[in-house]
Design a protein around this nucleic acid. Structure first.
Lengths: 112, 112
DNA sequence: TGTTTACTTAGCCACATGGCTAACCATTTA
DNA sequence: TAAATGGTTAGCCATGTGGCTAAGTAAACA
């Protein structure tokens, strides 16, 4: 079961694509506008958009000769949840270790 | 400035490596133990550990002939923050759009 | 000391990725 | 309708990635 976290995390592991996402949270934009700040050829840039689209992070829509790109919030939230969950488990374990350390310390004090 | 978000997100875009992280939040483990549930050759698995280590997500330490792997929480938090920030900006914009829509609706009601 | 155990190194392979140029198509605009 | 604009397709290339086997090293154990 190849999770879609795979394609999501892979999609945002590229700085160009992360920059596109950072722009798109501000609102939809045309391919040309998104491309402008990046110093790479248009066809190369288009590939990045296709990767984002394939990962479900983005939808696109052709209007006349312009293609407009919108962000899709759900996958962003899903990835955030995965990370949050790992942190939570890790913090839980940390708390348990701290509690354990305290118990040991106390029982050593009893030994004196 | 090649961000370390690059190597971080790339590291966790692989299901084997995410599984390793999910195991490691429960506590440190030896390479052999981490490898056991995965049906791939050990050298292949070791590469994954190296990738995790290079991304800073994990530290390893040799004890006798065993190598113990620990998780490093900071990068996890950093990535989580990036995602959270994107969601926040997106939600802000959503709120502004909703407010705008309401103003428009109200002004149309005035026209009646 | 010889054997097992637990990695580790080396080296090979197929396919994916990110980059390019050249040429093409479809809508505007003049 | 001719020219300009905004993407799109095709195809090439170098490098990276995830997989393997075979063989090596170093610590523990018998």
């Amino acid at each position: 079961m190849a999770n879609h976290l795979d394609s999501f995390f892979s999609a945002i592991s590229d700085p160009t694509r992360r920059a596109v996402i950072e722009r798109l949270v501000e609102g939809p934009a045309a391919v040309g506008e998104l491309h402008a700040p990046h110093d790479i050829a248009l066809p190369t840039f288009l590939k990045h958009i296709k990767v984002l689209e394939a990962s479900g992070l983005v939808r696109t829509e052709k209007k006349g000769r312009v293609r407009v790109v919108h962000i899709e919030a759900a996958p962003l939230a899903e990835a955030e949840h995965w990370l949050t969950r790992q942190r939570e488990v890790w913090e839980d374990r940390f708390d348990r270790l701290a509690a354990l350390a305290e118990r040991i310390e106390r029982s050593q004090a009893d030994d004196l």
